[in-house]
Amino acid sequence: MAHGDDKGLVLPPKIAPVQAVIIPILFEKTKGEVLAEASKIQYSLEEAGIRAHLDARDAYSPGFKFNEWELKGVPLRIEIGPRDIKNGEVILARRDTGEKRNVKITGLKNAATIALESIQASLFVKSRKFVETHITEVKDYAIFKKIVEDGGGFAQISWCGDSKCEEKIKEETGATLRVIPFDEKVKPKSKCVYCGKDAKESVYAARAY
């Protein structure tokens, strides 16, 4: 999956309901101080247009929260505890790479904004590369069926435009026509991969899983 790994989802920041989760490290003596600072950070991030959430639940350990929010794919995690407050900093962790670094609280808005832009760009490049390496141009129907059967990603095929051919392809292979690209014209003299008639469209086909 392009937007996931063994730990769960890896959401692009632009579509993530929560872009940054703040996880306070709570101890009884310093709980009030840490939550107050965490709330200020949440407000500051939201002022900068970042969708932030403060996980102030005290029934769960920080480790449990880390795993839960990683599973949900939240792009950024911000950790703050009493020692961090003394140092005037937080720990900023990226979901996509797992990179963690110390960031001064005074520079957190800027650092978080830059990190979210970097994550968005990185995931876009990764997704495009994934798509490009999982597309096979196919002219022979037997080869097309094998690609579909082997789960080989998308097959780029020529199609006559007749819904009967589309239905037969689905019936015989389980694959459906997924995309008709706007910017890809069918090549001259191309033939429909199923019936052999003149092709009208270049399409991407794949089986849904």
Rank of each mutant, 00 (worst) to 15 (best):
P17K: 15
I50E: 00
K200P: 08
P24C: 05
S158Y: 03
E37I: 15
A155G: 15
P13C: 00
F144R: 00
I85H: 08
L177N: 09
E89C: 10
S118I: 13
V74H: 08
V103T: 12
R83N: 04
V34H: 08
E149L: 13
E47K: 11
P75E: 05
K29C: 10
K31Q: 14
V18N: 01
K65I: 04
V179E: 15
N102F: 15
P82Q: 08
C165Q: 00
F27W: 06
D96P: 06
S39V: 04
G174S: 06
G81I: 13
R51G: 02
A206K: 07
L35P: 02
G196A: 09
K191V: 04
K145P: 09
E167Y: 12
G152I: 02
P12L: 02
V186G: 04
P188V: 01
W159R: 00
R101L: 07
Q42M: 03
D198L: 07
L116R: 02
G4T: 02
I41A: 03
K200G: 11
A121T: 10
D183E: 08
W159V: 01
R128E: 08
G73S: 03
F124V: 14
K29E: 15
N87L: 10
R94H: 12
V148S: 06
E47G: 14
K139M: 07
R207M: 15
F182G: 11
S122R: 12
T173P: 10
I143Y: 07
I169W: 02
V18W: 04
P82F: 07
I23Y: 03
V18C: 02
E99P: 13
V193Y: 02
S163C: 05
K31D: 06
K145L: 14
K14F: 10
D6L: 11
V179P: 13
L71K: 13
S61L: 13
D5G: 03
T173L: 08
R94L: 12
D6Y: 15
A142R: 11
D5A: 02
Y60I: 13
G107Y: 05
A59C: 06
V186L: 02
S163H: 01
E89N: 14
R51A: 02
Q120F: 01
L123R: 05
R95Q: 10
N67T: 08
S202Y: 00
T113P: 04
K7S: 11
P24S: 03
L92R: 04
H53E: 05
K164I: 07
L45F: 00
E117F: 06
F154Y: 13
L177C: 15
S190W: 00
V90L: 12
G8I: 02
A208Q: 12
L92G: 04
A2K: 10
N67E: 11
K170I: 03
F64C: 11
F27T: 15
G196S: 14
V18Y: 04
V131K: 13
E201L: 14
L26K: 09
E137L: 09
S44A: 12
S127A: 14
A48P: 12
A121W: 09
K187W: 03
F154L: 13
D5E: 01
A36M: 06
A206M: 08
